[in-house]
Design a protein around this nucleic acid. Structure first.
Length: 113
DNA sequence: TGTTTGACCACGG
DNA sequence: GCCGTGGCCAAAC
């Protein structure tokens, strides 16, 4: 069995983010205990998997990845469609909407590839 | 082949 | 709070 690539792990975690919630690059990197927040950004930029990348924001709740969507407003619209309020490219009530994979998935989670 | 870059973040001052 | 810095490591050049 080949070892899963970093991208696939990131995708698997991103797919686990519930609709209406958001997570961060750093939280995913820390949860995987591999690579770094930059690597998570890189992995999502590859965009090979079908992961809800719009639910991943930076640690301040800013939509730092919006530039890389098909249109600059796409990320915001997707979030709003899920009930997430966005103002000035930033998630409103970010601290309460934040979804921490290490809490939700625990230490023994195995990726679904 | 080395260097720079990047959807980032923790840390120290 | 805001800086500057270091670190992470694959890709692009």
């Amino acid at each position: 069995m080949p070892e899963p690539h970093y991208q696939e792990l990131v995708c698997a975690v991103a797919r686990a983010i519930p609709s209406g919630r958001v997570s961060t690059y750093g939280a995913i990197a820390q949860f995987l205990a591999l690579g770094s927040a930059r690597m998570v950004g890189w992995a999502l930029h590859q965009n090979r998997c079908h992961a809800p990348a719009h639910r991943v924001v930076n640690r301040k709740g800013e939509l730092s990845g919006r530039i890389h969507f098909h249109t600059p407003t796409m990320m915001e619209e997707l979030l709003r469609a899920e009930g997430v309020e966005v103002e000035q490219h930033q998630v409103v009530h970010f601290s309460t909407l934040f979804w921490d994979p290490s809490i939700a998935l625990g230490d023994n989670w195995e990726p679904i590839l």
